[in-house]
Structure formats: structure tokens, C-alpha cells
Design a protein around this nucleic acid. Structure first.
Length: 585
RNA sequence: GCCGACUUAGCGUAAUAGGUAGCGCAACUGACUUGUAAUCAGUAGGUUGGGGGUUCGAUUCCCUCAGUCGGCACCA
């Protein structure tokens, strides 16, 4: 999908289109006041105050029509530079523009405005020369948006649109948007029987169906095997904890609004756990550790419950219950770099094996101004952040730094990916923490016999298993690699009367090897069964008829291929065993 | 949570300017005995998301609750 923001020409075109949108809205709603209209990856938007009027999608064609009319008139777009005083005078009746002007840097003595016909807007520019160039645009959606992005403020109305140089580009983009909807994990999840939800169970609480649980189990085993080889020890801890636990960790202060409300039992207060760090801290603290024991790596596929805002819920990508592929590494200061590197290496290894290519690293740092969210110890933070930078530069991966995105206890490296529909999110994470070990008074005995506080690395490779399944379904369009396919092989006898016996023999043989195999012995035509096999996206269809029965072979058709290949069953077993082992690579 | 839209059978959908709902797929029954994306015929399946109101009459209009979707905000 094209990124408008990264293309200078399209960027200017889209920003000019935002002005055109504003002009059209002003024509149709003379009371309209305008906030900002920036270019974004997917085009542009404009935030508008329409007083009491709220727009719906049905209003968009009307606005588009007005935009086309203005564009056809072909007015030139003229830049004008004025002083701050002049600007304040010019926009004196517009509180939004006054707000923008008065917040401008003192050094910004010159303020630019752009005028097209009867419409003038405050703007840095640049713009295209004439509105005539704005032909191939489409208004995409309308929604509410908080003024200045702050939920404490009132809401403005945001109209989204996108503009291209040619009608072909626009059409191609709209087609891409339609196709993206087809691979939305919520749609695929329903079609392929992966998960369901029920109003009676509760929103945001997905339930995995047999097909979904097969994927789940395979992923869980896959990552746990890797972790075991890297010296992780897996544990099992309860899905709830005493409120005191979270007061000790600091999570209670930061996140209690996003936890399920506490429940009181026999004078004790509990919450459903929103994360697993405190439990793992307690496990570490359960025994005395020598410096020789470190690093200690505690892993768990752990179920968490977070009271996510209802509007944030999205299939299994963001739910109120989910399972983390979590681990906490307790290390000495000297071990930070090698352990952190080991985690990043594991992430890269998994992504390569699973053929995940579209991701980027983000280094999430604290906002030094924010003394409320972040543990107030500048030396600790600087130390942690510098360490991470050093490790990342040493590993040599590209990343962008994000201020104010760190966890309250430490900076983190996040792996960001984009879903079929919606905003980018974090898949994997690796976090450095000097804070929780202190809060829990954790220690180890160092060489000199003194007690030292360990450092903790929090990390999740598959992130939440739920979210990972969502992501992987969308990446693969539901065509999962063999090892993750709920049904790996579908056996279709050509004629039950003559071929079922042979088919059952092959079925039993594959079953014996723990291959997920289905025998379609319904009294239906081959074409009918083949169609269903393809629609269920089953990787292999085995066709068994006279030819195969007589020569003691099998014929298969691989998903996505028109070709049918015949070979002895043992050769086929070798082939798919290899494919399963290689994760489809 | 906020702004807006939506909710019709297991799934996908049609319809009513207010007169109690059609279709396709799936399911079931029977016939067909099949070589690579749908064999034919028949049967059954709906308090039109829940509740309330207006009305002689509501699936349609109004209110309310729930859920879903598009954004915003949030995301340890």
C-alpha cells in the first residue's frame, strides 16, 4: 500500500486537496471553522468544527461534488506572507486559527496564507499551483476526533480523503482497500472457523474453535521449543493476584482504570491479572540466587485480562483476554547487552522462519518532561536508554526513536507491524527494566558476597498469541503454511465404491504419523469436494482413483496450483515431513 | 469511553412510502455413482439483536439497552 507521506509530490497534492475539501465544506456549511488538515500515510484529513451539525458518510458525495465544481473552476492557489499581527487580525473571528497563530514560535515572524478563490487558509505550504490539478480524489470516511488529540477536549469532525495524479492510481488504491477487507482476520477467522465471540460470554472475549486451537497449539510449541533451547524455564502462575502485588509493582497506580475491577474475598482484594511481571518477580524472589545462576530466564504462555476501552476491541488483535508469550530475564548489568542481543536475534530468527517481512523497530523512550508516568530517576533512565541504543547500534538494526512511548518502568524496543485494516501495532517487544527488581527487593549474591539488584528484561516474541494469529492470518490471506494448517491434507476418493478402501488405508497411514488429515467420503462429485477443499484453503488435496489404487500411488494438488502430481505414498510423506519441518520455507 | 453508521435463518443477502418476510449457500431426505472450483429434485429452518413507546396494525417510525463496524482517545 502506498505511503502518501513519503512521496513529496503526492504529499503536496493531498495537502492541497485538504484545502479543497475545506473550501467545499465552507461553501456548504458557512458556519464551519477549521482546525488542521495534514497529510497522512493514507492521504489527508481535515478537522472541522460544524457547530451542532454532525456529518455522516451520506454527506460525503455532496461534499465531493462541490469539490469537483471548485476544481473545475480552476482558480490559482496564491501564497501570501504576512506578519503575526496581520495574521491575528485577519483570522480574528476564528478561535482555532488564533490558537494556532498564538502558539507559533516567536521566531516565526512571517506567517504564510494560501488563497484559492473565496477561500483562504493559514498554511506553511507548499501547494500545487491551481486547484485544477485536484481531480482524482475520493473522500473515504468521516468520524469524530478530539481537538488537539486530547480526550478532555470537545470533538471535531474529521473527514478523510485521498488524492492521486491519475484516475488509474486512485482506482487501484480503492481496489487495494477492498482487497484488504478480504484478508481482515475477523472475516477470515469466521470463514475458516478460527474463533468466535458470544454476547453472553462478553465482548472482547474470543473463544478459539478447534481449527483456531490447532494454530494456537502449534505456535505455542514452536516458540516454547526455541525458548527451551535458549535456556528458558517455563512456569505456570495464577490468572489473578492480590491488589497489593500490583501496588508493589506500581502497575496499580498507572493502570488500575484498565484492569477489571477488584473483587473482595474474605477481606482480601484481588484483580484479574493484566500482566505477568509481578508473578515472575515473586518466582525469582522465592529462592536465593548467586551471580553464577544468572541469567535466569522465566517464561510463560500466560493469560491476562485487561479492561480495554470498548471502542478499542478488534477481533483477536485487541481483546479483553489474551495470552502473552511472555518471559522475564533476570540478569547482571554486565549481561544486559548479550541477553538483549539474544532476544533481538530470536525475534529476527522467528520472523525469518515465519517469513514475516513488513516490520520495523521502534525504540520507545521516556518523555523526560513527564514526571508522573515515568519513575523519577534520570540517571537510571539515561543509563537504560543509552544501553539500549548501544546494543541496537552494535547489532546493526534500523530503528526510530519514539519519545514518551516507554513503559513506566523502562525503555523498550518494539516491533511494529501493520494490519490489513487499521493502525499499526506492536507484535514483539523487548524491554529493559531497572525499576521492578528494586520495587520487589530482588537480589543476587555477587562474587564479593554483597547483595546486588538484578536487571530485568521483559520480552514477548510472538507478543500475544492471539494477536500473532490475527497478524499471521492477514499476512497469509488465510493460506497458512502446512505446519499451521488446521487440516494439512484432504483425501478425496474419486468413487467411494471402488476407492474408499484404499483412501482409508492412506488416511490411517498419515494419521499414524500425526498428520492432520481429513477423509472426504461424502457421496459427492470430485469437483464439488475439490471446490470445498480449495475454499477451506487446505494445503494438499489427495485424489485417489483407479490410477492410484492400481499403482499404489497418490496424486496430489497443492493449494494455489493447477497441477496434479502422482508419486508413491512414501515419497509424498517424505516431501510433506520436510515441508512441515521447514515451516514452509 | 467519545463521534457516527449498522444488526433480517448457521453464513451471505433481498424486501416493505407501516399491512407480520424472499433468495443463494450450508443442513436434512431421495435420486444420480461420479477424475480436479458447485448433479438434480424435495424438506425444514425467521418472535427481522433485546426491551419499551406511537399505531387498528411495527421488521419498517421514536426511545432505550446490547453487540458489531469506521474513526478518535487509550494500549503495562
Amino acid at each position: 500500500m502506498i505511503n502518501i507521506k513519503e512521496n513529496e509530490k503526492l504529499s503536496i497534492l493531498n495537502h492541497s486537496c485538504a484545502h479543497l475539501l475545506a473550501q467545499a465544506v465552507k461553501h456548504l456549511y458557512p458556519e464551519a471553522l477549521f482546525w488542521v488538515g495534514p497529510v497522512i500515510e493514507e492521504g489527508f484529513y481535515y478537522d472541522i468544527d460544524l457547530g451542532g451539525i454532525t456529518l455522516t458518510e451520506e454527506d460525503l458525495p455532496k461534499i465531493e461534488k462541490e469539490m469537483k465544481k471548485i476544481a473545475k473552476d480552476g482558480k490559482r492557489i496564491i501564497r501570501e506572507e504576512i506578519s503575526k499581527e496581520e495574521a491575528l487580525e485577519k483570522f480574528k473571528n476564528d478561535p482555532y486559527k488564533i490558537d494556532l497563530i498564538s502558539r507559533m514560535d516567536e521566531k516565526d515572524t512571517i506567517i504564510s496564507c494560501y488563497t484559492q478563490g473565496d477561500f483562504t487558509d493559514l498554511c506553511r505550504g507548499p501547494h500545487v499551483e491551481t486547484v485544477k490539478l485536484l481531480k482524482n480524489f475520493k473522500l473515504l470516511k468521516v468520524s469524530g476526533a478530539y481537538w488537539k488529540g486530547d480526550a478532555k477536549n470537545h470533538m471535531l469532525q474529521r473527514i478523510y480523503g485521498i488524492c492521486f495524479e491519475t484516475p488509474e492510481d486512485l482506482e487501484a488504491h480503492l481496489k487495494e482497500l477492498e482487497e484488504a477487507k478480504e484478508r481482515d482476520h475477523r472475516k477470515l477467522g469466521k470463514e475458516l472457523g478460527i474463533f468466535m465471540t458470544s454476547d453472553l460470554v462478553g465482548k472482547g472475549m474470543p473463544m478459539y474453535l478447534p481449527n483456531g486451537y490447532i494454530i494456537w497449539e502449534e505456535l505455542e510449541n514452536y516458540i516454547k521449543d526455541k525458548e527451551k533451547k535458549l535456556g528458558y524455564n517455563h512456569v505456570l502462575t495464577p490468572p489473578l493476584g492480590n491488589v497489593e502485588l500490583y501496588k508493589t509493582s506500581g502497575h496499580w497506580d498507572h493502570y488500575q482504570e484498565n484492569m477489571f475491577p477488584k473483587m473482595e474475598v474474605e477481606g482480601e482484594e484481588f484483580v484479574l491479572r493484566p500482566m505477568n511481571c509481578p508473578h515472575h518477580m515473586m518466582i525469582y524472589g522465592n529462592t536465593i540466587h548467586s551471580y553464577r545462576d544468572l541469567p535466569i530466564r522465566i517464561g510463560e504462555i500466560a493469560r491476562d485480562c485487561r479492561f480495554e476501552a470498548s471502542g478499542a476491541l478488534k477481533g483477536i488483535e485487541r481483546a479483553r483476554t489474551f495470552c502473552q508469550n511472555d518471559a522475564h530475564l533476570f540478569v547482571t548489568h554486565e549481561q544486559i547487552e548479550s541477553e538483549f542481543k539474544c532476544v533481538v536475534d530470536l525475534i529476527l530468527e522467528v520472523y525469518q522462519e515465519l517469513n514475516i517481512k513488513n516490520f520495523r523497530f521502534e525504540l520507545s523512550l521516556r518523555d523526560p518532561e513527564d514526571k508522573v508516568k515515568y519513575y523519577p530517576d534520570d540517571e537510571m533512565w539515561n543509563n537504560a536508554e543509552d544501553t539500549l541504543r548501544k546494543v541496537l547500534d552494535h547489532i546493526g538494526i534500523d530503528y526510530v526513536e519514539k519519545k514518551g512511548e516507554a513503559a513506566f518502568y523502562g525503555p523498550k524496543l518494539d516491533v511494529q507491524v501493520k494490519p490489513a485494516v487499521g493502525n499499526e501495532y506492536t507484535l514483539s517487544t523487548c524491554q529493559l527494566d531497572f525499576c521492578l527488581p528494586m520495587r520487589f527487593n530482588l537480589n543476587y549474591i555477587d562474587k564479593d558476597g554483597s547483595k546486588k539488584t538484578p536487571v530485568v528484561i521483559h520480552r514477548a516474541i510472538l507478543g500475544s498469541i492471539d494477536r500473532f494469529i490475527a497478524y499471521y492470518l492477514e499476512e497469509t490471506k488465510g493460506v497458512l503454511p502446512l505446519w499451521l494448517s488446521p487440516i494439512e491434507i484432504n483425501i478425496i476418493p474419486v468413487n467411494n465404491e471402488y476407492h474408499l478402501e484404499y483412501a482409508e488405508k492412506i488416511f490411517a497411514k498419515l494419521k499414524e504419523l500425526n498428520i492432520r488429515v481429513n477423509l472426504d467420503s461424502r457421496e459427492e462429485k470430485l469437483g464439488y469436494k475439490m471446490r470445498e477443499s480449495v475454499m477451506k484453503k487446505i494445503p494438499y488435496a489427495l485424489i485417489l482413483g483407479n490410477k492410484e489404487t492400481e499403482s499404489n500411488t497418490i496424486s496430489f494438488r497443492k493449494y494455489g496450483s493447477e497441477e496434479t502430481i502422482t508419486m508413491p505414498i512414501d515419497d509424498f510423506i517424505n516431501k510433506i515431513t520436510e515441508e512441515i519441518k521447514n515451516k514452509g520455507n
